[in-house]
Amino acid sequence: MNRPYLQIDNVGMVFDTAKGSFTALVDVNLKVARGEVISIIGHSGCGKSTLLNIVAGLTRNTSGVLLLDGKEIDSPGPDRAVVFQNHSLLPWLSVYGNVKLAVDKVLSARMDRRQRHDWTVHNLELVGMGHALDKRPHEISGGMKQRVGIARALAMEPKVLLMDEPFGALDALTRATLQDTLMDIQAKLGNTVIIITHDVDEAVLLSDRIVMMTNGPSARIGEICEVALPRPRRRLELTENPEYLRARGAVMRFLYERQRHPKAA
């Protein structure tokens, strides 16, 4: 078998808190192939963000090793671009300026001024934001902000695109169009994507594999569900598809039978 593109090996995370140490993750093992879309699902507080931040390098794992394309992950970097849940655009920069900041920093060795400008505009057009280059973040809707956040991440040409509940704060219709945009882009560019979600349908629709996490503390990967649906996927055609229903059922049973949320009544 090929060497996996991203390899998470026995990763554990113990936080030092005021009330003593808190074990968030134990023995997380995962291999991700290049071009694969992985979603991570689990009840809130189980450690999904912690795991994603470890892959991003924003949080240092307390045990285990992570390898991306043969190199150990020990600090954040643009090869693991993150799309944050609350968009985290810089409010004093325009839509264009937010993406350009990333492009200037990450690609200035390879591209001259003209090319960096074109690349910035190209990525914003890719997410359908070419019409709003000069708008400030507070002038656009939540869905548009997430599009810009995705453009900023894509513009860095990351090896892995990391998304922490990117559509969690959006209404259902906006969320559906953003999911479609993401699938289109991923089909075109072949990105490797790890996306956190708490929405079962979103997980099944988007992913090649769904990683299900047990409840914390000491959360681990409980099950992994393959989604053998051909791409491109159309949400309407999937509603009756047996494979879709099987995957959906598997995730539902995991979440609501075996890992009933302790606080949920």
């Binding site: 643009p78 944050f84 810089l90």
Partner: peptide
């Protein structure tokens, strides 16, 4: 906000860039 710091870390802004591009405008 921690978010801005995280963006800066992912972009690997150096301290000078962080000061002029994040700290000062924020």
């Amino acid at each position: 906000p921690q978010d801005y710091r995280n963006v800066a870390r992912v972009l690997r802004l150096n301290p000078l860039e962080f000061f002029f591009k994040i700290t000062l405008p924020a």
